[in-house]
Nucleic acid binder design. Structure first.
Lengths: 206, 206
DNA sequence: GATTTCGGCAAACAGTTGTTTACTCACTGG
DNA sequence: CCAGTGAGTAAACAACTGTTTGCCGAAATC
């Protein structure tokens, strides 16, 4: 870390946070490609020129948001896989972890869901790259499970992609749902995961 | 249809098309919430004020685009389910239909993928409503298949949602892929559908 | 304690935004 | 053939956009 000294750097990063939080707040009601940088600085209580002390562009800020959002996602997936046990319990646990995560990081989840196929190239590619790392991690975890002991690498990846897509989609659905829809969504997600699980058990490996 | 007379109405709808096409062209590189209406009229070669002869606001145009895009999707799914035969062939056929559809309606597919979780409420809700109709249609088609003869309504819907989500996601991936990635994506999609198919065959109904 | 560094601000810049106004003028219905 | 309808226009509007400039003052360095 290239810290010059304490108080200066600390205040700077506080302002940086203020900008990112302001952007996240604004992104609840619009997409990233519709965001203005005067809008962001205004929301953050900062003058327009101040923005350039922290980011070259708005896109720069977007990429920073992606990294932050996916960091918390990574922490989540590790938690979901940590708890080992019978497969059935693992599914319930994973869905619960997702629901908790969405409740705690709603704005981040919304951002990822919204911009995954959004209109800003650099942001979209940043998300794709992070989800790729993510998928690789899941594939590795799957390889360790007895169910998929003798599976080919390609098939492991295929299932990993299915899981990651399903997780992101479930998170996206939860993020814009009220309390009562949440029940319905998680219940469906559990059954879908169970269906996939059944498919895995009877997959003709080779 | 409330046609007053020929040439007048015909020219009007031509201009309307020009506006919608201009919007679709612009939406390749940005999201809907970042679209400007002067931008659209400029691209369409029309004066800004002329826009109001066709739409109350940009959101109106967005909803019109959703309906148009989903209409072509509906035609596609019917084609995919029309060809009956052994299940394996049905999967290959369905994926092929999707790939063809994306190649022919790239801009529409991009629009739906991008705005499904996008920043404009009315558009997002319009897409959700159409995909809901869509899911219901798939659930009905599934009920007719021997594999899911004695399944509950809830389980049929659960699988239908899985299929629709998977289809939209596959289409979204194809839409931004080059020719060589297309092979990889369709191959993965086929295997994933096959896995789900295996799951359905061994599902403990009840 | 003097000097440099640098985060943040106010002001100004040329362009752009959505919307309204009054206007043309080809097509329409009688 | 003639009055009326209505799609499209040009011009003007205040408000807003991203970016640059010079400056201030507090923190950091010596």
């Amino acid at each position: 870390m290239s810290q010059t000294t304490g108080a200066r750097q600390a205040q700077k990063q506080l302002s940086r946070r203020a900008l990112m939080d302001a952007a996240l707040r604004l992104l609840e009601h619009q997409s990233f490609s519709g965001l203005g940088m005067r809008e962001v600085t205004r929301e953050a209580g900062m003058s327009p020129a101040g923005f350039y002390r922290h980011f070259r562009d708005l896109e720069d800020l977007g990429v920073a948001l992606v990294e932050e959002a996916v960091d918390s996602l990574h922490a989540m997936i590790r938690a979901a896989f940590a708890e080992q046990g019978e497969p059935e319990g693992l599914i319930d646990h994973a869905v619960q972890v997702i629901a908790d995560h969405v409740r705690e990081h709603r704005v981040h989840v919304r951002f990822i869901a919204r911009e995954r196929f959004g209109g800003v190239r650099r942001v979209r590619e940043a998300i794709a790259a992070e989800l790729e790392r993510f998928t690789a991690e899941v594939a590795e975890a799957l390889a360790a499970q007895p169910v998929s002991a003798r599976w080919s690498e390609a098939d492991l990846r295929m299932v990993a992609e299915l899981y990651v897509d399903h997780m992101v989609l479930t998170a996206a659905a939860l993020q814009e749902a009220d309390a009562e829809s949440e029940q319905r969504i998680t219940a469906t997600a559990r059954r879908q995961l169970r269906l996939i699980s059944v498919g895995r058990r009877h997959w003709a490996v080779g």
